[in-house]
Nucleic acid binder design. Structure first.
Lengths: 328, 328
DNA sequence: TAATTTTACGTAATCGGTTACATTTAATTT
DNA sequence: AAATTAAATGTAACCGATTACGTAAAATTA
């Protein structure tokens, strides 16, 4: 590997001079600058990032802690955030915790080792203690959807209750006395619990009935499986409210396997507005949590540390899996 | 940050001793071992990875270079490989090139800076030169589906021609004189070109007709858009052969928007066997490139350097979007 | 021309670890 | 008890950068 020292040798100067030239800091005569730059070109030298990190005690990495990549919502999130980060000269240090507390701990430790410029936290299993530690280490943090956690940095909060209320309402507006079921994420998952409350609120408001709550794990497979099982025992269902799009797609297929027409026999809504939703048959009505412009904002928060709290207003997107939907 | 030096101070020994104890290398008296371990526990010390990397000139990172994350094939690949890597104590250094040569170059450079233990290369825009460089730097490499590139390490090759031949055949077997169209990846994309050849081979063999080739970019959106456009000009189509599942899903929706029943009016096949395929309506017939057990093998190749060449035999998976399909 | 200020560059410490080698101390051997 | 060997630990160089500080050379001023 070509090092600073090599360049210094070749140019007949000290490493300090080369370093200064590379970073445009301090003084250097035009001749030396030229000579050094020429050599750098010739041997295609580029400074070692690891050494740089250690020396500077900082990096251009932004940690992105997510629970998994199975839920398309997160793979889309990763893409969007990565692009926004790149635009501002940052790289993403992807911390996929695989729904596993141990991995969360591992990544929280290695974030520090990697001298990350900031952390974006969107994961269950992150506790107050962890955020306190990040704060103590002066790692700017943006939490996404971790409303119950406290820290002095920025937070993007999502009103799940309101979102699912809107979604559920969209079903009930066309069928006030409908019997519905709620397809939730894993037991204990806060966002799903909040969404469940929104679902219940709409049900009460319209005097409709909830036939229960099903627990999936945000995958197509679990949506399909839970719904299939449910339909074996219930025939009097008019609507399914799902805690994410992927499960909605699974549930949709399960309903169709039971010869139910969507939305005529049964209305169905997803959540998250993942790209797939526009291409299912029928197209999926869903809830949009945040628009594409929020990702740059997240990176800005980390780098400029404006330390704002955002409350995002979810929007219902009507498509074909509920009445009143339209193509888009 | 707690450092080795801190521990050494607390224990009243030198950093060398602490390092030895931490790594179980060299000799140390039972008392010192105990004392040091106790302190490490107390202050929750863990060695800095960056410093370790620099010092040891190696890391537990495996670079995974992919073209993008938009194609679900790749997001599923990332998950699988990450899990396999984790099982063997490695972390993934995700290099998402965003279909961009510059980023490929950036990542190839930083791989070296990160002292990666190996690289998994599955990306267009990687040239022979790049692999030569990796070889020169002694970075063990596994290429996936880069048949035309030469290097002394392991390679997983996929017979795209055969895969698409099987897929096309499955359509033609039930409708020998069908008129088909091929929905390809971007112009110049090698795997799509190979698949196109397989498609043509089956067409010739059955005396069927190809109405042309459409170029998408492996996204739902492009599949939908290309197919919609095509259907505005053609009404005599009996089959669509797609170069990946995501475009197939988009194309499927486009066909359905044109009131075509699948598979009765028109048969359609995807490629890659992504998870979604089991949940579309109709379920998607597709081609499986490699099974789940291949991911551990890839990591093994990197760490044990068996330097094998693999040719994977693609398998056609019949579902409901072609005749002769069945649920699974 | 001598004194002073600027400019250009080198020396050496530092980041947080690892490790070859030297040294001290303890245990064995004669 | 002296000599030898083995065990325990310390010293210092190193990985590849950055940077505070010092010094030599050049430019400016007196």
């Amino acid at each position: 590997m070509t090092t600073l020292k090599d360049i210094a040798h070749l140019a007949g100067v000290s490493t300090a001079t080369v370093s200064r030239v590379m970073n445009g800091k301090g003084e250097a005569s035009p001749q030396t600058i030229q000579k050094i730059q020429k050599i750098i070109q010739q041997v295609n030298y580029h400074p070692n990032r690891t050494a740089k990190m250690l020396s500077a005690q900082k990096s251009n990495l932004i940690a992105l802690l997510i629970p998994n990549l199975r839920n398309p919502f997160f793979s889309e999130l990763v893409q969007q955030i990565e692009q926004a980060a790149n635009r501002q000269g940052y790289q993403i240090y992807l911390c996929n915790s695989e729904d596993n507390r141990q991995k969360v701990e591992y990544y929280l430790e290695t974030m520090q080792d990697n001298y990350v410029a900031g952390a974006i936290i969107d994961s269950l299993f992150v506790e107050q203690m962890d955020l306190d530690q990040l704060e103590q280490r002066h790692i700017p943090t943006v939490t996404i959807d971790r409303t119950h956690l406290k820290h002095p940095y920025a937070a993007l909060n999502v009103d799940h209750l309101q979102g699912e209320y809107l979604a559920t309402k969209s079903i009930l507006q066309h069928q006030k006395q409908a019997q519905l079921v709620f397809l939730s994420g894993p037991v204990g998952e806060q966002s799903s619990q909040d969404r469940y409350q929104g679902y219940l609120k709409a049900i009460q408001e319209f005097g409709a009935t909830s036939l229960g709550i099903l627990y999936g794990d945000f995958t197509y497979e679990s949506g399909y499986q839970q719904m299939t099982q449910f339909l074996q025992q219930h025939t009097d269902l008019q609507g399914v409210v799902c805690s994410n799009d992927a499960m909605a797609v699974g549930a949709l297929r399960a309903c169709q396997d039971h010869q139910l027409r969507i939305p005529q026999d049964l209305q169905l809504v997803g959540y998250d507005n993942t790209r797939l939703g526009k291409f299912t048959n029928p197209r999926l009505s869903t809830v949009q949590q945040f628009g594409i412009n929020y990702f740059d904002l997240i990176i800005d928060e980390l780098t400029k540390q404006q330390k704002q709290q955002y409350w995002l207003t979810p929007q219902f997107i009507a498509r074909e899996s509920t009445y009143g939907g339209k193509n888009d």
